[in-house]
């Protein structure tokens, strides 16, 4: 077996009500140093983690949402968001923040890919290690 494994971080919970979204992101950032094949999945309430204009001053907690936008700097380039989960919650792609990375031609391209449920199932199936929090 090669040294590189496919790691998928599954995010199914809204941010702020519990610590899972934040501490999941912390694993992703630390894990980036291990140079594995990393993907992030956002489905169910997890899609709210990527919604733009999150304002946390009113609840008195640090807003970690801007950290998602730095993922490209950590070579984390694959963020899959489930289309059905967005639609069920009244969200569209336009409600999501911009997360980009530099491609081989040094152009900024979106790291977010909207996928349907069937494709999400395939993405999950293709992994070696699935971390959910």
């Amino acid at each position: 077996m090669s040294d590189t494994k496919r790691f998928l971080y599954v995010n199914r919970k809204a941010p702020h009500g519990t610590v899972y979204a934040l501490e999941s992101l912390e694993v992703v950032l630390i894990g980036a140093a291990f140079e594995q094949d990393v993907s992030l999945a956002f489905l169910d309430d997890g899609v709210f983690q990527l919604v733009k204009k999150q304002v946390t001053t009113g609840i008195g907690v640090k807003n970690f949402a801007p950290t998602y936008r730095a993922l490209g700097d950590y070579d984390v380039k694959k963020l899959y968001v489930e289309r059905e989960s967005l639609a069920e919650r009244g969200l569209t792609e336009d409600d999501l923040m911009e997360v980009t990375h530099e491609n081989d031609d040094e152009e900024d391209v979106s790291s977010i890919e909207i996928v349907d449920r069937a494709r999400m199932a395939q993405i999950m199936a293709a992994q070696d290690v699935v971390l959910s929090f």
Binding site: I30, G31, A33, F34, V130, L131
Partner: peptide
């Protein structure tokens, strides 16, 4: 120890099983 130990466990182990809420 650090979170790296979690990633390393994922790399080294044949199976990783998560228990949570």
């Amino acid at each position: 120890s650090g979170l790296g130990q979690l990633i390393e466990a994922g790399i080294q182990a044949d199976r990783l099983v998560v228990f949570g809420d």
